[in-house]
Design a protein around this nucleic acid. Structure first.
Lengths: 198, 198
DNA sequence: GTTTTTTACCGAATGACATTCGCTATTGAC
DNA sequence: GTCAATAGCGAATGTCATTCGGTAAAAAAC
């Protein structure tokens, strides 16, 4: 029974935020600049979102879901289990965790600076984990449940690690070396099982 | 040829900062509260440190070196390679990366919010990596160089991942499960080598 | 021992922000 | 057409990190 929020304004805010986060990161992007780029006032942004943190999450959620869906398509187009694993690990860690657009970095900054009230919905995290679990299952149908579980956890952990390093100017430790190391370990896990079976 | 900085004041500032960072985290700790707890003025803190970031790093550096030294003692007291690896992985990831005192979390927050001028000395990072490399070498003297390298990288990566999760209220993914997963992978790498040798 | 000079130390700005407030004006429901 | 809810706005607020201008302690020069 009153005025309604405009989808156009919501989209404008999210679009402006996505672009600015990409260009300058979460910390350096101000609500004021988001409002200006979206063609509205600073205070009106708060009619649509409760906080800067919430904006970041609203932008990141669909972005990650799209990336994971793309990854899933790439992985399932591979012919051999080795190729599938390679595509999964590299796509997830180089392509998404260390993405050039800076969306992951934005989320890391948002999470690291989150205030007590800033909570996020764990659903996205759980969904991502289940997709990875699923991709591993398709790549290696015969892998034991415990190994599959371990691989899923390791990949999620590595995702976080790579994401964090994005921000830290850790040129000293190249991400590529770490990703290769992880792939080696994953292959060892698969290989051990094969050896045990034989 | 003039007044000198007092070591007592420097120590007081660092001590106050360490305690406050532990209690409230980096973000919630203000320079004003550090100064008050150290018994000096806000502006005088800047005579001793250039920025809040620098204080965090000054506190973290000796803390980490002490923890790694302790870890090294624990690991080298183990009798079997398996025990050594277990002690190394759990000590590093549960004991240090996910430490209760919150020092690692403080550094993550400091790094995530670092401004362009806030640089840190990579020496601590390189030193830590070399210590881990060394511990792996002592635990598994026969491990091939490439595998040892891979294991070192994986542990560093996992360290970052666990550190990041500290802040995220990621109760959904337990750190314990991720650490166990990593240990499983490391053992597979060691096992594969043994299998190949046989 | 006095003078000089450097700089630790302090209280009061400054400047950035995220977030809130009071008001106006639009608009959906009746 | 009236009315009540609320989108939208400009101007606060409040909270920091960091800087500035001045004062006085103390090291060096004499």
């Amino acid at each position: 029974m009153a005025r309604q929020k405009s989808e156009q304004v919501r989209v404008a805010i999210m679009g402006a935020a996505e672009r600015l986060f990409m260009e300058k990161g979460y910390i350096a992007t101000t609500i004021s600049s988001i409002a200006r780029a979206a063609g509205t006032s600073q205070s009106n942004v708060y009619v649509y979102f409760d906080s800067k943190f919430e904006i970041a999450f609203a932008v990141f959620d669909p972005w990650l879901r799209t990336r994971i869906a793309e990854l899933e398509a790439t992985v399932s187009a591979q012919k051999t289990p080795e190729d599938s694993l390679h595509a999964l690990i590299h796509g997830l860690l180089h392509g998404i965790a260390a993405d050039r657009s800076g969306q992951t970095l934005t989320l890391v900054q948002a999470l690291a600076t989150a205030k007590p009230g800033d909570d996020y919905n764990p659903e996205l995290l759980i969904w991502t984990m289940s997709r990875i679990h699923h991709m591993i299952g398709r790549a290696l149908p015969d892998l034991a449940a415990a190994e599959r579980e371990a691989m899923t956890h390791s990949l999620m952990l590595a995702f976080d690690g790579i994401a964090l390093r994005q921000n830290l100017r850790r040129g000293e430790i190249t991400a590529a070396a770490s990703v290769d190391a992880l792939e080696k370990m994953v292959l060892a896990l698969v290989g051990r099982r094969a050896a045990t079976d034989a």
